[in-house]
Design a protein around this nucleic acid. Structure first.
Length: 591
RNA sequence: GGUCCGGUAGCUCAGUUGGAUAGAGCAACAGAUUUCUAAUCUGUGGGCCAGGGGUUCGAAUCCCUUCCGGAUCACCA
């Protein structure tokens, strides 16, 4: 039984013994004692004063006395106004260490046992390279997958590639018109960047045409529709849909360039997928569900043949789900893809890592799936995340105001190199080891920077100030880990815990922080929120660094205490490693 | 206009189900290494938790309202 639950039972027992009032222990609320006071758990007695009919002070004191008499796990208490602070005993912590010391998967949970969850993330367009916003998406998706796995779920990572549509045709067309048969090989340009270059070029040329038409007297919206380039792009889309051989061939060639480019970026970010869906193969799905919905009277058909759903009862709008010509809209595809995913995997939950500009869309999707009484409707969860803003404003691919993912990663690598060299920490490494080290540190800094922020929040990235390597950062945590590893490398010891020895207060502080890890994992998994793990990692690292300064680990003269302390260090190192793995961050042995 | 999300220190962010004097990091300043890696640690300064009202023993947290920022309400994806 968890100590919190045991304490709740004790408190309930205390109330019934002292005041002859029955209390359900599940209604007892406990808090962690704030660090300005001595103690581990705080019970606020105000709510039970009407039972005790005593002053807050007397009630708390009586309860505290009762608990310390009844249990060896609590050694003392103090009362400040209505707050009863209870302190866990040293023997409790010794026992805790002994129990958890050799757990291989300390912190793992079983809340997802027997359940399958699909996490869809990344979902790029094939007309441009990935930028910082996509990096946030990818890291979130990967990390959430790791966390869910650690919490016991079977996880399927999926990528739905948006490989068709008018935007793809834009880069194809620009390449056809202005590309002079440029290829990634001929220009030595990464394929996704090459295609992205033509996407931007299309937009530039298109704008010129639009301005010219406006000068000729057209309104802006007319000009946008009438510009020759956009008409050509639309023609190309029609050809693509008609399976025109040349168009398809160009499409395949250019998409392959992009995939080759993405593969490099994904690999460097350390993300991967179990399943890849292509929108070109799924965009016709969903029509069966429309038919089904019509029969169930969930949808209604207009005179022109278009199909709609009225979601005003749910506070949403009336939405089209099928055009009059029988073609799909975005939501139709998503209905179809959800069904496809379920048919293939029978997943219990389906997490979509998609930016918060699609909050409305996913509300609609879930609503429709519920109306259709799909068994997977309740398991749909939109992991909505805020944009990454630049000091200059939003990132826009077409306008070139983006922080490119590949460039950013390379910048981070260079910064890591520079700092390591400045600190003079390059001795004893081969060139290859150094290069790997810089990469691990750089990725640690970048990933931690993006994952420590609550996903729902917009976040700010200033390219002028490179991402920090001090303080609440990935490298700080990596560094802490290398300090522990240095100690553990230098000595051979058996992680045997002897509960007879009294632990130092600093040891106990660290143990206390360690003991929170399993709870953090559960909360992070339930909320699909890696930032909980990230912030906890920082707490844990700080906690170890305090111990490191306060006491000597290798220099401890009491050998039994030294063995215990080494066990605490080993558990800390393992927990740091495990937690960072949940964030997709590696830890170097030395740095 | 309707709906949704956000607003906490100069900057970037934490803040469990309402709890004690509001917390970190960065930046600034002052210190710490004969000893396990100073990418570290300790301390100082810095706040009308956007504003106002309400609920109660008690509110950054819950309710109402105003303001600010953003998104969305497409037969685009």
């Amino acid at each position: 039984m968890k100590i919190e639950d045991a304490l709740k039972k004790l408190i309930a027992k205390g109330i019934s013994t002292l005041y002859l009032e029955a209390v359900n222990d599940e209604t007892i609320k406990l808090e962690n004692t704030s660090k300005d006071f001595e103690g581990d758990f705080t019970f606020v007695v105000f709510p039970i004063l009407k039972l005790s009919k005593q002053s807050p002070q007397n009630t708390a004191t009586a309860l505290g006395t009762f608990i310390c008499e009844q249990s060896n796990d609590f050694e003392s208490f103090n009362v400040i106004s209505g707050f009863l602070n209870l302190k866990l005993s040293r023997s409790y912590w010794s026992n805790w260490l002994q129990e958890n010391n050799d757990k291989v998967d300390f912190g793992s949970a079983k809340i997802g046992k027997g359940k399958k969850v699909m996490v869809e993330y990344s979902s790029p367009n094939t007309n441009k390279p990935l930028h910082l916003g996509h990096v946030r998406n990818n890291l979130l998706g990967y990390s959430v997958s790791q966390i869910l796995k650690f919490a016991g779920y079977e996880v399927i990572k999926a990528n739905l590639i948006n490989d068709r549509g008018i935007h793809i045709c834009k880069s194809m067309l620009a390449w056809q018109l202005y590309g002079n048969n440029e290829t990634p090989q001929s220009s030595n340009l990464k394929g996704d960047h090459l295609v992205g270059k033509y996407y931007v070029l299309f937009d530039q040329k298109y704008r010129l045409e639009v301005s010219a038409l406006i000068a000729d007297g057209l309104t802006e919206s007319e000009a946008k529709k009438e510009a020759p380039l956009i008409k050509k792009a639309q023609e190309m889309l029609l050809k693509w849909e008609a399976n025109d051989k040349d168009t398809l061939s160009l499409w395949q060639t250019m998409n392959q360039w992009v995939y080759d480019g993405f593969e490099i970026t994904y690999k460097r970010m350390g993300v991967d997928f179990d399943k890849t869906y292509y929108e070109s193969q799924t965009y016709l799905l969903g029509k069966d569900s429309i038919e089904e919905g019509l029969q169930k009277n969930v949808f209604e058909k207009e005179a022109d043949g278009s199909v709609w759903i009225d979601l005003t009862a749910e506070g949403l709008d009336r939405k089209i789900v099928l055009r009059a010509d029988g073609t799909s809209v975005y939501i139709t595809q998503d209905i179809g893809t959800a069904q496809l995913k379920y048919d293939e995997t029978q997943m219990d939950k389906s997490v979509y890592v998609v930016g918060n500009e699609q909050d409305y869309h996913f509300k609609v999707l879930q609503c429709i799936l519920k109306r259709l009484e799909k068994p997977y409707a309740d398991g749909v969860y939109h992991l909505s995340y805020g944009m990454v803003d630049l000091p200059t404003g939003k990132m826009k691919s077409r306008e070139g105001t983006v922080v490119d993912a590949d460039e950013l990663m390379q910048d981070m690598h260079n910064t890591a190199k520079k700092i390591t060299e400045e600190l003079g920490k390059t001795e004893g490494f081969t060139d290859l080891e150094l290069s790997n080290l810089y990469e691990v540190i750089a990725m640690g800094a970048l990933k931690y920077f993006l994952l420590k922020v609550d996903p729902v929040k917009r976040m700010m990235f200033n390219p002028e100030e490179s991402i920090d390597f001090h303080g609440n950062t990935g490298p700080f945590i990596q560094y802490t880990h290398t300090r522990i590893r240095a100690i553990l490398r230098s000595i051979s010891f058996q992680p045997i815990v002897d509960t007879s020895v009294e632990l130092h207060a600093a040891d106990i502080d660290l143990l206390k922080t360690l003991s929170w890890f399993p709870d953090k994992v559960v909360v992070a998994a339930n909320e699909f929120n890696p930032s909980i793990i990230a912030n906890y990692m920082f707490e844990l690292a700080k906690s170890f660094n305090r111990l490191y300064h306060e006491v000597s680990i290798l220099g401890e003269t009491n050998n039994t205490l030294k063995q215990n302390r080494l066990a605490i260090c080993a558990l800390t190192a393992n927990t740091l490693k495990q937690g960072m793995q949940l964030l997709g961050i590696s830890l170097p042995e030395r740095m």
